[in-house]
């Protein structure tokens, strides 16, 4: 793994750029633990101060320090993406491995369901979900429902890897030595699909965070919990662009764009490393 990362770093400019962008965003979010202000409180600093030495990224009309607010928001947003990615990886692994290994009608049935989940437009359903939940909407509930929809693209990818594994000799050997399906999948196949799982996890984070930002901007999430989308939501509520408080919007957008491009570049190069003939499109993208 370390060797692979070293190779990627040396051979691919895209990987270097991606790594630097993601590292920067991670660093910024790690600083959240040192925030001098409680993240959810408002009017702790003078409002509407442009970027200066005292307030690097300026302050908001709600009296928050944009730098520290951004740091906490990035942490929460990344955590959200990671949770969605983790849960949906589990679903994608189960469906993908099972479908690819079993083949036949199991495969056809699972892939029909899979394609359905790829096609269904998720945003209206999430909006409906918020409409019903309103104030009880928590970020974990949102993460859960998004994980339930975010596995389908990647399950197909894992399935195709599993299909090629099935054709390999060691699978037959394991089968004849009396291993159960579950044992073969977990002990023999899982290690081979892990690289795909890692690369799709990054793409999945791009997807889920993009959707979360969108919902938050509309106010369809728990906007009192600082997130990137929540910051933009409050900036819009206070008409920050019209009022000339551009830093309130510009820094979150810059940070989240860096995060997206960084994660995407990592996923693309990791994918090219795993399988030079891979098609980037098969692992989805924003939305």
């Amino acid at each position: 793994m370390a060797g692979a990362i070293r190779d990627l770093f040396r051979d691919h400019a895209e990987f270097r750029i991606g790594a630097v962008l993601v590292a920067f965003v991670l660093l910024l979010s790690a600083l959240a633990s040192f925030s001098p202000y409680p993240p959810e409180s408002v009017y702790v600093v003078p409002p509407d101060v442009p970027p200066s030495l005292a307030y690097w990224f300026g302050t908001t009309s709600r009296g928050q320090d944009v730098f520290w607010e951004l740091s906490v928001a990035l942490r929460n947003t990344l955590l959200f993406g990671a949770v969605v990615a983790m849960i949906s990886r589990v679903i994608a692994l189960v469906i993908g491995l099972l479908s690819g290994y079993k083949g036949g009608w199991v495969d056809r049935a699972l892939m029909s369901v899979n394609d359905t989940f790829i096609v269904i437009p998720l945003l209206p359903l999430l909006v409906l979900f918020y409409f019903v939940m309103r104030d009880r909407m928590s970020w974990l509930a949102l993460a859960l429902i998004m994980a339930c929809f975010g596995w389908a693209y990647d399950a197909r990818l894992i399935r195709s890897v599993a299909m090629s594994l099935k054709a390999r000799e060691f699978t037959q050997t394991s089968l004849f030595s009396g291993m159960s399906t579950r044992e073969i999948l977990v002990q023999e196949h899982l290690p081979h699909v892990m690289p795909v799982v890692f690369s799709t996890a990054m793409n999945n984070m791009v997807w889920s965070i993009g959707l979360e930002v969108t919902l938050a901007v509309l106010g369809f999430t728990d906007v009192n919990r600082p997130t990137i989308g929540g910051m933009i939501y409050w900036a819009n509520q206070h008409a920050a662009m019209v009022a000339g408080v551009w830093w309130w919007i510009a820094f979150p957008i810059a940070a989240v764009t860096m995060m997206f491009i960084g994660l995407f570049l990592l996923a693309v190069t990791a994918n090219a490393y795993i399988d030079p003939r891979s098609r980037f499109r098969t692992i989805g993208g924003a939305f």
Binding site: G210, L211, T257, F260, I261, F264, V268, G285, A286
Partner: peptide
Amino acid sequence: AIGLHPIPYYILALL
């Protein structure tokens, strides 16, 4: 293209 592709629709529309 690689730079534009991962940006969410909302952010690009806002820009």
